[in-house]
Design a protein around this nucleic acid. Structure first.
Lengths: 326, 326
DNA sequence: CTGTTAGCGCCTTCAT
DNA sequence: ATGAAGGCGCTAACAG
């Protein structure tokens, strides 16, 4: 920057202003400075800018898994909004571990990110403590947190699962199973299972433990869960796969075994993955506002940075998409 | 940090050392400082550290699309390695635009990232100029660049496409089509198409323009391409979908139309997406070392930061996976 | 093993 | 509308 100032024959301050608030300078000075910038190929040092101004243009986002296409949509939403605002995204995945999440939060706070977007709604006490102390605004996106650390922008996993179960019942299915991810370590899975059970209560159907399964992630797990459940409860006529790509795995397995879907067994999924609307048959599922969650999260953080004090708790809802598989 | 120093009764430097090179301090001092750190809940300011040391612990990565599951694997690889090294990842997508990529490179350079990982192997002249001037190490990962800006870690799109085409020919297919993404703006697509055509030359088969298609991304595009090609060239017996999820879309369309795969038409894909090995039939494709590319890229950057001068150009190869669809 | 001195590159504040 | 001084929080380089 010194070189630019020298080349343009002005002070450092003028260069700084030409870059940040060009309208405050006279036309000539501005032009002279910006020309010099271009000529020299000067790239400002944001690190120094951040240090001096005690602000940063970086937002940190932590998702459970970078590879999972579900989270990617939310990341895309935040990335788009941040880029438009000239800000950067720092991304990391916690591998579904709270301890890992804590370490990442520490790293992000050390980097002085100006905001955090966390998919998880559970955190270690130390993580919460760090967030509190640092004062960075935080948005939790994975579930509509009952009592968020700071802000929450999401949909309700509980409501969504309940709605899908009721939808299946309304279409005439008598014995509906639910396959979710392991609920012990995953609150979202837990909420979905609770939603399913809540629907059964509304329907006055007694829950059957053989119809409530928990499995690991992946297509193979979904396939196996379906086969297991059908063999143990031959009367089951619909299965709600409440997570991941379980429904896809189950559908392929059904094709392989030539089980008619939905004739022999109906299949419903959770997220509206692209495959689900192209598969044969097209798969009924929930549509969740993942991209929008990302966008709104970034926007809310930016609002906060600009001084808005509002602490948002936003339910962006969901939609049941009825297709051929149920 | 001042508070910590005061609380522990030592100088700032000692606190700094206790955090960065604890082994150089005496046991008691170290303990006293670290206790104070914990008690106060001190989180070091990396921004200041970076400014002072003229180093940063952040690597920037730019992919064409965050949502595309292909790129995500590479991102995952870098994220894992960086995290293990206590570094952070800044991620952005260029939306397949060179201008956007240039803007992002400028932003990353301004953030003083200590390394860049670019998927693209084409860049605007100004982008290249900026990289050169800033001196940040760069790795290009999308294709084995003939003359990389700095380093290149990838596989050869040309070789991979040629190998698959030859593989199909070896399995007895007489009339092999190739569907790729639009080659004009996408060098990787171009290289794949060139590979396909090179294979035809080796096979001494004259290229048929009706068998070389270019389409947009997405399953629908793949489905439509297959139908088009088959209707225009009824004799086509195999189609190589050289990109994106085109093969998946085509497979579903074949199921829908009850075209036997591979009986009526054989289908081969490019990347080994999880779906391809679960679909019915399982789909022949190429396996590319995407995760490994990400890992090695991060590792090479870290090596460079530690003073290694070597400029790597690494071909991580590929594999043809023969399955039921061909 | 620990402390002192200087400065990283920019922004804030105040002056002109 | 522009400039000068001071400092953001930390670390490099040296000294003790």
């Amino acid at each position: 920057m010194r070189d630019v100032a020298a080349a343009a024959g002005v002070s450092l301050m003028t260069v700084s202003r030409a870059l940040r608030e060009p309208e405050r300078l006279s036309g000539e000075t501005r032009k002279a400075v910006l020309d010099a910038v271009r000529r020299i190929g000067y790239v400002p040092n944001r690190i120094a800018a951040n240090l001096a101004s005690a602000r940063s243009s970086v937002v940190g986002q932590i998702v459970p898994s970078i590879q999972n296409s579900l989270y990617v949509d939310t990341v895309k939403g935040t990335a788009d909004v941040l880029r438009a605002a000239g800000m950067q995204l720092m991304l990391a995945d916690s591998g579904y571990s709270l301890e890992e999440e804590e370490a990442l939060i520490a790293a992000f706070v050390a980097q002085r990110v100006s905001g955090l977007i966390l998919h998880n709604t559970e955190h270690t006490p130390r993580a919460v403590e760090m967030i509190r102390r640092s004062g960075v605004p935080v948005i939790e996106t994975g579930d509509l947190a009952r009592r968020p650390v700071d802000m929450s922008i999401s949909y309700s996993n509980f409501n969504a699962a309940r709605a899908m179960t009721l939808h299946l019942a309304a279409r005439g299915y008598r014995s509906i199973g639910c396959v979710s991810l392991v609920t012990r370590v995953n609150r979202r899975a837990r909420e979905r299972q609770r939603g399913y059970l809540a629907a059964l209560r509304i329907l006055k159907r007694p829950p059957d433990p053989r119809l409530t399964m928990e499995v690991g992630p992946g297509m193979t797990a979904g396939a196996r869960a379906m086969v297991d459940m059908v063999s143990r409860v031959p009367g089951v006529d619909a299965i709600f796969f409440a997570g991941d790509v379980l429904a896809v795995g189950a559908l392929f397995e059904a094709q392989r075994r030539r089980w008619a879907v939905p004739g022999r067994i109906a299949i419903a999924g959770f997220d509206d993955l692209e495959i689900l609307q192209h598969a044969v048959p097209r798969v009924t599922c929930l549509r969740l506002p993942r991209l929008e969650i990302g966008r709104r999260s970034a926007e809310s953080l930016i609002d906060r940075l600009r001084g808005k004090e509002e602490r948002i708790r936003l339910d962006l809802g969901f939609e049941v998409i009825q297709r051929e598989s149920t």
